[in-house]
Amino acid sequence: MPVLTESEIERLLAPYTNQNATLAAKMVEYLDLLVRWNARTNLTAIRTPEEMVRRHFGESLFAAAHLGDPLPDTLLDLGSGAGFPGLPIALARPEIAVTLAESQNKKSTFLREAVRTLGVKNVEVWAGRAENLPEGRQFHTVTLRAVDDMAAALAIAEPLVRSQMLLLTTATPGLPAGFSVIERLPLPESESGVLLRATRD
């Protein structure tokens, strides 16, 4: 039995995005894997499946719905953790080549297992620090969510960004020179969370 059914997940995700049955089915698999792994290795401090769906899947899919037009061709999720927001974005937007950068071994191992289990073809897991990516490599969009030190993460992100940054945060951070916030959206079901889309000037 799944932790939550497709219909339960669809109901929880309704405030965040319009999803199809295929996406909901993938979220069932992803949630089952996350709950199972989280019981033995601390991937997320959120423990209840319903909150995982709202906070992790919902907010990630909200970001997927606000990537701008035209859609990015490449996306780097910096400090991906258990895959948020990068992996749900990859599932919702299979036309985007997504790189999940995660330096903690237990989390990058989980990400590889999640990509394999979910059969995602448009995802690369970079099991290392983002600043050690091949020199000169850039991505149309870089996402940041729940990073410990936003200022340090933004400094790492800046040379990797070709066009825009997408930040899921509770405050407006000091952006690197040459970036401006062009969209600021409150996160559904959140008292203080916002989605910031910042582009190069």
Score class of each variant (00 low, 15 high):
105 N>K: 15
48 T>H: 10
130 A>F: 05
62 F>K: 00
15 P>S: 04
133 L>R: 07
97 A>Q: 12
106 K>F: 02
55 R>H: 14
82 A>F: 07
185 L>N: 08
14 A>N: 13
123 V>E: 03
134 P>I: 06
14 A>Y: 12
177 A>Q: 11
169 T>C: 07
175 L>W: 10
25 A>T: 14
94 P>C: 14
96 I>Q: 00
168 L>I: 06
26 K>S: 12
131 E>M: 13
60 S>D: 07
7 S>C: 06
58 G>A: 04
101 A>C: 09
131 E>G: 13
195 L>H: 06
51 E>S: 08
125 V>L: 13
6 E>N: 12
101 A>W: 00
112 R>A: 10
134 P>H: 08
177 A>T: 05
176 P>S: 05
70 P>C: 13
84 F>C: 07
174 G>N: 13
189 E>D: 15
92 A>H: 02
38 N>E: 12
190 S>W: 03
197 R>M: 12
30 Y>K: 01
36 R>E: 15
146 A>F: 07
47 R>M: 06
42 N>K: 13
78 L>T: 01
140 H>D: 15
181 V>D: 07
72 P>W: 02
95 E>F: 12
143 T>Q: 04
162 R>D: 11
40 R>T: 14
45 A>D: 13
52 M>L: 15
142 V>R: 01
93 R>M: 13
86 G>S: 10
52 M>S: 10
177 A>P: 05
145 R>T: 03
1 M>C: 11
135 E>F: 10
95 E>A: 15
33 L>R: 11
68 G>V: 02
33 L>C: 11
99 T>S: 13
110 F>V: 02
106 K>H: 10
64 A>F: 06
